[in-house]
């Protein structure tokens, strides 16, 4: 597989990986294509303009080189961003930040943005906050996908 230097760098030294203690939001998603699973944790704080931003972020991922690299880079992209902005991080932005991905690996990058959206969903719902319609739809889809994969992985 031909990966860019950026991808390999992130794969070699992933940023912000591991469990987070007492996170404000957790997102767990799975990818039906080949079954990779990602868990993302966030801590939310306020910036100077009193807007809510992602203060801390960590991930755990089971997946290929591209999945690990996209997981790592999304933590960089999301850190310090407002929740609104973070929700808008899309796969194209992630792929670009990595200097490109092999075509067959583009699907791995969706995982990261979905996990982030899920973590934000989790934070909003825990705090009884209003959840944007699009996020609600996304959540439903992600939830179904994850169930399918976890079932597959539990097979002995």
């Amino acid at each position: 597989m031909l990966y860019t230097k950026k991808v390999i760098d992130h794969f070699k030294n992933p940023h912000n990986f591991g469990k987070m203690k007492n996170p404000d939001g957790v997102g767990r998603v799975g990818n039906i294509v080949c079954g990779d699973v990602m868990q993302l944790y966030i801590k939310v704080g306020k910036n100077k303009k009193k807007k809510e931003v992602i203060k801390k972020i960590k991930f755990e991922t089971f997946g290929c080189v591209a999945a690990l690299a996209t997981s790592s880079i999304i933590t960089d992209l999301a850190k310090g961003k407002t929740l609104e902005r973070a929700l808008n991080i899309e796969k194209a932005e992630i792929v670009k930040a990595l200097g490109g991905l092999p075509p067959i690996k583009i699907h791995c990058s969706i995982l990261a943005s979905e996990a982030l959206a899920e973590a934000i969903y989790d934070y909003l719902s825990k705090n009884n906050r209003e959840i944007p319609k699009t996020l609600q739809v996304k959540h439903k889809r992600n939830h179904q996908g994850l169930e399918k994969i976890e079932k597959k992985w539990q097979k002995k």
């Binding site: 597989m1 990779d36 997946g63 290929c64 999945a67």
Partner: peptide, 10 residues
Amino acid sequence: SFIEGESLIM
């Protein structure tokens, strides 16, 4: 267990 093969190969 718990890890993916392509990552391990790399």
